[in-house]
């Protein structure tokens, strides 16, 4: 918990440069932390898609796929990286009102 640059949505346009996209190589012991977003009955599906595109700079197809995972499976792993970066991402998701947590992969 040494790297808190609490991220606000309006200030995190460059967050994606530090947030690794999900890929097979991410899922190694080098980057064992993830940000998870959990389903909730209030956040709009369109809004969740928008947040994933806006903050993570994911394309629409990827953002919608993650949103549908949240909606249908109850949760989705939206970023993978160092613990510090996952805490930044989680704080940013909270800034948007999404229910996000940090977890060890």
């Amino acid at each position: 918990m040494t790297c808190f640059s609490s991220a606000h949505p309006s200030q995190v346009a460059t967050a994606s440069t530090a947030t690794q996209e999900l890929s097979a190589t991410d899922l190694t012991t080098d980057t064992p932390w993830v940000t998870m977003v959990w389903n909730d009955p209030i956040n709009l599906m369109s809004y969740v898609t928008y947040v994933f595109m806006e903050y993570f700079k994911y394309d629409r197809a990827k953002a919608e796929r993650l949103m549908m995972d949240v909606h249908e499976l109850g949760r989705a792993t939206v970023s993978v990286g160092t613990r510090e970066q996952m805490e930044v991402d989680t704080a940013a998701m909270h800034g948007y009102g999404l229910w996000a947590t940090v977890a060890k992969h």
């Binding site: 609490s6 606000h8 989680t90 704080a91 909270h94 229910w99 996000a100 947590t101 940090v102 977890a103």
Partner: peptide, 25 residues
């Protein structure tokens, strides 16, 4: 709901996270 727990199974880490982020949030 506005200030959710960031760690589901680690109250201490969650408490630290809240301490460092809630004012900004």
């Amino acid at each position: 709901r506005w200030f959710p727990d960031a760690y589901r199974d680690d109250p201490e880490a969650g408490s630290d996270f809240r301490r460092y982020t809630s004012a900004d949030l």
